[in-house]
Design a protein around this nucleic acid. Sequence first.
DNA 1: ATCACATTGTGAAATAGTTCACTGACAATA
DNA 2: TATTGTCAGTGAACTATTTCACAATGTGAT
Lengths: 227, 227
Amino acid sequence: MTIQVELLQAMRYFSGIDAAQLEHIRHLFKEVRCDKGAHFLAEGNYTDSLYFIISGLVKVYKTSADGKEQVLHLAPPGDSLNDVSLYDGGPNAAGMVALTPVVLYAIDKKDILRVLRENPALMMNVIRALAERIRRDSNLLEDLSSSQVLARLAKLFLGRYGGEELTAGLNLTQKDLASLVGSSREMVNRSLKVIEEMGGIRMSRRSVIILDKDVLQKIAEGTVDII
Amino acid sequence: MTIQVELLQAMRYFSGIDAAQLEHIRHLFKEVRCDKGAHFLAEGNYTDSLYFIISGLVKVYKTSADGKEQVLHLAPPGDSLNDVSLYDGGPNAAGMVALTPVVLYAIDKKDILRVLRENPALMMNVIRALAERIRRDSNLLEDLSSSQVLARLAKLFLGRYGGEELTAGLNLTQKDLASLVGSSREMVNRSLKVIEEMGGIRMSRRSVIILDKDVLQKIAEGTVDII
DNA sequence: ATCACATTGTGAAATAGTTCACTGACAATA
DNA sequence: TATTGTCAGTGAACTATTTCACAATGTGAT
């Protein structure tokens, strides 16, 4: 339950901030542990904390009126969670689930806002982090509206989406993949088969092994015709 | 060509910043005028300026490999442009076109960064502005991947997208509407007819008049079955 | 007024993706 | 080991959307 300064330094927010300063604020954080599968933050609610991912992987998603889920991001360690509602005062903009066991450091809204105000270097870090996220989101947006499922899946495997490359240990189901690329489970299943036949991946239960990035690259570009 | 402090105060970045401070930095801005239709910022280029919209409307868009355009935002006066590349150091994340004659105030990257560093209140404004944008983008993202064209069009007319309600004076073509909702011109044409028949809008060349928001609301929710 | 051009309207064919319905495979646990 | 439940595979019907092709309409420039 002790908050470690070295772990804080690995967060995007605190990169380049010196240990002495972090030493002063470490007491403001609380460690939170989530089991795999835990929905620890619900869309639409008001949660007055900011979270940092120390370890594990978090799925950030939105659910539409008709129940369809769209994954916005697979957040790896170093990422912050729930920034948006903190800074714009609105409700939580997305839901979060732990895809693996997750360790978070949590800090109260009022505390982090105070710390920020007193620390311009930190604010610049936040600004950069938010800017990177906007770029990522708008790339995803463009992609979702232009390329087709096959290409989107290939891009996913190339690590173009969540920022993290998908590894074998993730244990994502085909349904998960579907909501990552904004499609249906069946479509993902069929597309995976195609990519497998082309030698890009090998499928097995709850995991996909990447075999040939060049093949994926070609599929991602839509250069390939499927017959 | 004179930069006016009162106009600066109307920008999201400078809201709540007092006139005396703005007086000190006004000399850093340059006024830029764009004709309607001018593509004044290209995606992928490096442009070391931040822009503020004083008047007019700017279309912010991305173009995919196969030439399809997706509109990210219709930016109204008060908005800043090109923030992302400024803060993350990457190339321009989107292209920009003036949809009307536009007046911008431009400031050099190094200048605005210096001003920011010296002014924590300003930084907090930036953080809030970026957070609002992330929320907007992720709503758009969810929407594009879930609802269908008819519903997306209705939402567009309800002002749920670009943040601004579409007015008659905009002179958008059906092709423009298509790239706003991520669809094709023909599909937009047919959908507009449907909405018109239901009494939600009245169409005329290059403009759409909103007649009945309740009808639009129902269409947006997907409550309506089209026969 | 006329010509050229951009915009709009529309049918029909093609396509991508969804949904449904069901089967088989696997894994956990009782 | 039997049972239960989740996950993966797959055909078939259906739906939304795109694409193509072309006609009609309006607009601006000369």
